[in-house]
């Protein structure tokens, strides 16, 4: 046996996460600890507290602190058509199957500030699928959801987005979908007419309808193994028979308890297909 004892900081983190759950029903208790620890250290330092216990005391009593803390705890890093080859695979390999359905449901889980929502809406419009599709865009962070719904991004990101869109096999010009003013770009309102933005937690909430495509990339990497199993189980139950499931390029279902419910559909792009139920 290796002798182990819990460091004070680890105790504080455990207590803070428990407090967030009991007080606000945000459940980070099964998030991957290495990353949570880094971000709580950052939050403690930058919010000016001597200890994580002091941060906890304040957050418990002052609910205006919650959004600030949540911004540290939820990582909002994305870009439109991130990993263009993933979107190219959706376009070339998945879309031909989707075209055989009269109506479609697509779930972007952990949609952050909406970059992937607009990417898929544009791709579906280019492929003539938009009119028969309802998109569900979910996240636990209300501020991120509001940003997603607004569809406004900094102008200096648009060059990257445009390049990604082109590499993804885009059939139109990205500039057809936004207008720029004052250093910002706003994406066309019509792109979100068929999008339902909703607060949903993969940790505490339930199954979400019969989806034909679920995209959840670089979201579950922040979960520990048991929580990943819960989330993948939730996706498995939410998918229609032969529905598609895309995850991040360095994620894998190899280590999941639900691995046998899926087959690799486009292996190198981490696109899976739900086997018959």
């Amino acid at each position: 046996m290796i002798e182990t004892f819990e460091k004070i900081e680890d105790i504080e983190i455990r207590l803070l996460l428990e407090a967030l759950y009991v007080r606000y029903h945000y459940d980070f208790r099964n998030y991957a600890m290495g990353s949570i620890k880094r971000r709580l250290r950052q939050a403690r330092e930058q919010m000016g507290f001597a200890t994580i216990s002091a941060l906890q005391e304040r957050v418990l009593h002052d609910e205006t602190m919650l959004p600030r803390l949540l911004d540290y705890l939820t990582v909002q890093v994305s870009e439109m058509f991130r990993d263009p080859s993933y979107f190219r695979a959706i376009r070339e390999k998945v879309v031909p199957h989707l075209k055989t359905y009269p109506s479609l449901k697509v779930w972007i889980a952990g949609c952050s500030c909406g970059e992937e929502v607009y990417s898929l809406a544009i791709l579906f419009r280019e492929e003539g699928l938009e009119d028969r599709t309802i998109f569900y865009a979910t996240d636990i962070n209300q501020d991120a959801l509001r940003a997603a719904e607004a569809g406004v991004y900094d102008l200096d990101r648009i060059q990257l987005f445009t390049e990604n869109h082109r590499k993804s096999g885009g059939k139109s010009s990205l500039s057809d979908y936004y207008h720029a003013s004052y250093g910002r770009v706003s994406f066309d309102r019509s792109l979100r007419e068929r999008v339902v933005f909703s607060d949903h937690s993969l940790v505490t909430d339930a199954v979400f309808g019969e989806m034909h495509l679920i995209s959840c990339r670089n979201v579950m990497i922040y979960f520990d193994r048991p929580l990943q199993d819960r989330a993948v189980g939730l996706f498995s139950d939410s998918l229609a028979r032969k529905g598609f499931f895309g995850i991040g390029s360095k994620e894998s279902l190899r280590f999941s308890a639900h691995a046998e419910e899926f087959k690799e559909f486009v292996r190198e792009e981490k696109i899976y297909q739900r086997l018959g139920k």
Binding site: M33, R38, R39, V75, I221
Partner: peptide
């Protein structure tokens, strides 16, 4: 990141 003595993890933080 090293998650524990049995597991490695990845993140997309800044």
């Amino acid at each position: 990141l090293i998650e524990d003595r049995e597991t490695l993890g990845l993140t997309c933080e800044e």
